[in-house]
């Protein structure tokens, strides 16, 4: 029987995109049903037919870590976007592209 787990994240702390990216990363082990209930992002993880219980439990644990990682990545990307653009400008503004 396929594994089943439910995990809830607080909307004030986590973005839906972070949850979606983490789910995409785990798609080799499970699929995700996602909905917002009140202040919570509710994730229902259903193990793939080929995922054994132990592997599914590991995947759920990784999913929780991945959501936090993707949330931090989003914050880091937003904070450093202007300087990334500045570096790209410095790198390529003087190239002759003809």
């Amino acid at each position: 029987m396929a594994g089943l787990a439910e995990v809830t994240f607080d909307c004030k702390l986590y973005g839906a995109e972070a949850v979606q990216k983490a789910a995409y990363r785990g798609m080799n082990a499970f699929t995700l049903d996602l909905k917002v209930e009140g202040d919570g992002i509710v994730c229902r993880l259903v193990g793939n037919i080929t995922t054994e219980q132990e592997a599914f439990e590991r995947a759920v644990e990784d999913f929780r870590k991945d959501v936090l990682d993707y949330q931090l990545r989003a914050q880091l990307q937003a904070e450093t976007a202007p300087i990334r653009n500045l570096i790209m400008g410095l790198a390529f503004s003087n190239l002759r592209l003809d």
Binding site: D69, L76, T80, I87
Partner: peptide, 21 residues
């Protein structure tokens, strides 16, 4: 200090790899 653009990913035992552009 301020952060420059970089990415990170988990390795083993809660160590992370960070790479810049």
């Amino acid at each position: 200090y301020e952060l420059l653009p970089f990415k990170f990913d988990r390795l083993e035992d809660d160590d992370y790899l960070i790479t810049n552009m």
